[in-house]
Amino acid sequence: MSEKPRIIRARYDDPRVTALHAEKDAELEPRYSAYYAAHPEYQGRSDETLDPETILTILLAVHGNTAIGTVMLRALPDRLEVKRLIVGKKYRSQGIATQLMQHIERDAAARGATELYLHTGSLQHDAIALYEKTGWLRLPHLFAPYTEDGVSQCYVKQLVPH
């Protein structure tokens, strides 16, 4: 892909967003199946229902007419959190995830946030590498609702005010 994708706002129920979420779920399920087979007490604990009312922003990376990535910004009572950063498998390693994160970080800063949080799974080494490369710091303690799933990592990033 020679040109940068366009980053546009989308709705929670946009079928392009839903399709990217399904692609992510299909990829991650096998990655975690052995962990949950060995640790059935944690099965389902990291599952969450995203309340659409808590979603402030959904961004979609689009190349031509193809949706190639997405990310969400969620408001919780005590913080803003990045959710569901996804880039389609055949579009990875092209800077799209970094571009989406830069946009969502600017969105959070424009809302007055001075820090932003995210959660990822310990077996998502590609995501962890991206976050650490782009200035996210791993927290020594997990934040709710991820404290009891046995396979989470939580991160924070200081934001530049806008």
Score class of each variant (00 low, 15 high):
N65Q: 12
T54F: 06
E53K: 08
G121Y: 13
E41D: 05
R16G: 08
H39N: 09
E115F: 01
A37D: 10
L142S: 03
R111G: 02
V156W: 02
Q99Y: 00
R84A: 11
C154G: 04
E81T: 11
Q153F: 10
A19S: 07
P52M: 15
L123M: 14
H141S: 10
T18V: 14
E53S: 04
L118C: 09
V87S: 00
Q94K: 00
P52L: 15
D107N: 06
G64R: 14
M101A: 02
D51W: 10
Y42I: 13
E27I: 03
G135V: 09
Y131E: 00
C154L: 14
T134R: 09
A10G: 06
I128W: 04
H125V: 12
A38C: 10
L28R: 05
E48N: 10
H63F: 15
A108W: 00
M72N: 03
L118W: 09
Y36A: 15
Y35F: 15
R45E: 03
K89D: 02
P140I: 15
G121F: 13
L137P: 00
I104G: 01
A109D: 02
S93A: 08
P15Q: 10
S152M: 05
R84F: 07
L60K: 03
E105G: 00
V160L: 04
G88T: 06
A108M: 01
T114E: 00
A144P: 07
H39P: 03
Y131P: 00
